[in-house]
Structure formats: structure tokens, C-alpha cells
């Protein structure tokens, strides 16, 4: 049962991820991306990590994608205004993306594979997650919080009309 659900959700995740790339309309791309996030959230639920699933939906589908949609709606992207892409450009893009894949594969190949820890069904529950975050990973957590603060301040600075 769980395996079938996993396969179905995985299929949907990959399919909609592909549709993000292949659909012509940017709005459709974004909506497919939202679908991908939902499929991934489903996978989290299968791992009994409901907190992660919900937070994934709130943050990515509910906030970030809404902002994406917001921007794309204002841009008025359609076929007429889309700049012509020459073959050379497409070739360059393919080579660049291919190189990125090579780098990724290479780095993963060279990395040490850790022994897989026995999967705990309670790892994703909020109590355990909180304990791990505020105990074992307190410093990275706080550092990322500071990072977000810096990003926020930067956004406010950019948003200000005149900087004296």
C-alpha cells in the first residue's frame, strides 16, 4: 500500500516537474511546480513527517509560489513579447546545464556515503524535530535565522525609494 502510494506520488512529482520545464505558459509552469510541491508533501506524509509536509506547503506552495505567480502575472509574458532565441543560445544553454549536471554527479560520486541509519517513524514529528533543531543543530539554525534577517534588511534597503 505505502509502496504504491509512494510510486504514484513520485510519478506525479516527476511528471509535474517535467511539465514545469515543458509547458509554454509560465503561469502553467508555476501551477505545475505547486503540484510538484504537493506530491512531495505527500511523500513526507508517507514518512510520517506531517510537520515537514505542512510547512513545505505553507512556505513553498503558499507563500513563495504565490509571489512567483504575482510577478509573472504582472510581467504579461506571452508569445508576442518573448524574445527570439537563436540556435547558438540554445546550444550554450544546453552545454551550461550539462556542465552543471556533470559537476553535481562528480561531487556526489566523490562524497563519502554514510551508513544509512535505521529509519525512525517519529523522526519527522514536530517534537523530535524541535528537539533536534534546538539541541543538536542550534548554531546552524540561529545562523540561518540571521541570514534571513540580513536578506530581509537587504530587501527593505532595495525597496526604499531614496537612500541617503
Amino acid at each position: 500500500m505505502t509502496l504504491y502510494l509512494f510510486l504514484i506520488l513520485g510519478f506525479f512529482a516527476v511528471l509535474s516537474a517535467l511539465m514545469v520545464v515543458f509547458s509554454k505558459n509560465p503561469i502553467h509552469s508555476i501551477l505545475y511546480l505547486v503540484l510538484t510541491f504537493f506530491a512531495i508533501a505527500g511523500e513526507y506524509v508517507l514518512l510520517n513527517a506531517q510537520f515537514l509536509a505542512i510547512v513545505n506547503i505553507i512556505v513553498y506552495a503558499g507563500a513563495i509560489m504565490v509571489l512567483f505567480l504575482f510577478v509573472v502575472m504582472l510581467l504579461n509574458l506571452n508569445h508576442e513579447t518573448e524574445p527570439h532565441k537563436s540556435m547558438l543560445r540554445k546550444l550554450i544553454a544546453v552545454i551550461a546545464a550539462g556542465l552543471l549536471m556533470v559537476v553535481l554527479v562528480g561531487s556526489l560520486k566523490g562524497a563519502d556515503t554514510m551508513a544509512i541509519q535505521p529509519f525512525s517513524h517519529n523522526a519527522g514529528l514536530i517534537e523530535n524535530l524541535g528537539k533536534v533543531l534546538f539541541d543538536q543543530f542550534l548554531l546552524p539554525f540561529e545562523v540561518s535565522a540571521v541570514l534571513f534577517l540580513a536578506a530581509m534588511v537587504g530587501a527593505v534597503m532595495l525597496g526604499k525609494k531614496d537612500i541617503k
Binding site: 510537520f51 505542512i54 510547512v55 506547503i57 505553507i58 506552495a61 503558499g62 507563500a63 504565490v66
Partner: peptide, 10 residues
Amino acid sequence: ILYIMAVTSI
């Protein structure tokens, strides 16, 4: 509560 937040954000 988070479920409700998620649904409203959708």
C-alpha cells in the same frame, strides 16, 4: 493549526 494555515495559504 498548521494544516489550517496551509489550507488558507492555498
